[in-house]
């Protein structure tokens, strides 16, 4: 008894000391991280409940106008208040295009990742390296490259005309199609990489076993491969969906600026619209959407690990 006390006392102390020291040592980094993550967010949040300045900026006067304007629209001509149809339309377009982009990148990214994961080990890193090559170039330049390909006098139209398939250029640039092509191209690596990460860990003996048990190819894919790489699918989808939602450059350059997405609407408020509070409120709205998407992600991964157990 006495011995026990002697033995446990100093050891417990030492452990506590070590934990405290670890916390102390990591405190500066934690403080910087917390401040850098929440500081700007706080500013945006505070700005969203202030009044707009005459020439941009904010006036330090509390106002809920910005939040009111996110959801409602006071008709400037007859003064009636309705749901902010323009904002809803822009929001819906953003969500729709982001969802489609996610779906397309998944459709293209899945087989790509599968092919890479089934190459011999020594060549895999080479294929992976090729996937990351586009990242070396600036986003804007990649977007302009797409523009060169699909414009009326671009590669595709000139090629098709030379082959005699069409006699007038197809209008691809400045359409939703163009935005989608651009976003798919830009975000595809973000889908392939997490997919590959989970496929690489896939035990292909299980696939073989399934075949041995007379599963068809489709069944192997649906019942064995997809459930096992689900975390990769979800991570990839999140990585593509979230930046697509806030995309600014691609819709601006390829969409021709005729139809806004959320990112462009926010930019308008901070720029020519000179309504920073509304811009801030819209930014917070976008943030909330992203959080919602992440929550769904956390939920679905939890249920996934639950089913494995």
């Amino acid at each position: 008894m006495k011995n026990d006390k002697l033995a446990s006392g100093p050891v417990g102390d030492m452990q506590r000391k070590r934990t405290r020291r670890n916390w102390l040592l990591s405190a500066p980094a934690l403080v910087v991280l917390a401040a850098a993550a929440s500081g700007p967010l706080l500013i945006v949040l505070v700005y969203s409940v202030l009044s707009a300045g005459e020439y941009g900026g904010v006036v330090w006067k509390f106002s809920t106008d910005a939040w009111f304007n996110v959801v409602f629209f006071r008709d400037i001509f007859d003064g009636t208040t309705t749901l902010a149809d323009a904002h809803m339309k822009i929001l819906w377009r953003s969500v729709r295009l982001s969802f489609m982009t996610t779906l397309i990148t998944l459709t293209i990214g899945f087989p790509t990742a599968y092919v890479i994961a089934t190459r011999p080990r020594e060549t895999r890193s080479f294929w992976l390296f090729l996937i990351t090559v586009p990242f070396w170039t600036n986003l804007l330049i990649r977007t302009f490259a797409i523009l060169e390909v699909i414009r009326n006098e671009g590669l595709i139209n000139i090629g098709l005309q030379m082959l005699g398939v069409i006699d007038k250029p197809i209008q691809m640039l400045y359409t939703d199609f163009a935005i989608m092509v651009g976003m798919t191209y830009v975000y595809l690596p973000l889908m392939v990489l997490p997919l590959y990460a989970s496929m690489e860990r896939l035990d292909f003996n299980l696939v073989e076993a399934a075949y041995d048990l007379y599963a068809t190819r489709r069944k192997v894919l649906r019942r064995v491969i997809i459930p096992l790489v689900k975390p990769g699918i979800i991570a990839g989808s999140i990585l593509v969906f979230i930046p697509s939602l806030g995309a600014f450059v691609t819709p601006r350059v390829l969409g021709g600026g005729k139809k806004m997405m959320l990112g462009n609407l926010i930019e308008l408020q901070f720029g020519a619209g000179r309504n920073w509070p509304l811009g801030a409120a819209l930014s917070v709205t976008l943030l909330a959407l992203v959080m919602a998407a992440l929550l769904i992600y956390v939920r679905s991964t939890q249920s996934h690990s639950g089913s494995v157990r």
Binding site: I76, A86, K259, Q269
Partner: peptide, 20 residues
């Protein structure tokens, strides 16, 4: 001229409707 805050509000509302 540089528009007043009120005129800019009208402008922005029309512009948003135009590019929605």
């Amino acid at each position: 001229p540089a528009c007043s805050k009120e005129a800019t509000e009208y402008y922005t509302a029309i512009w948003t409707e135009l590019t929605k």
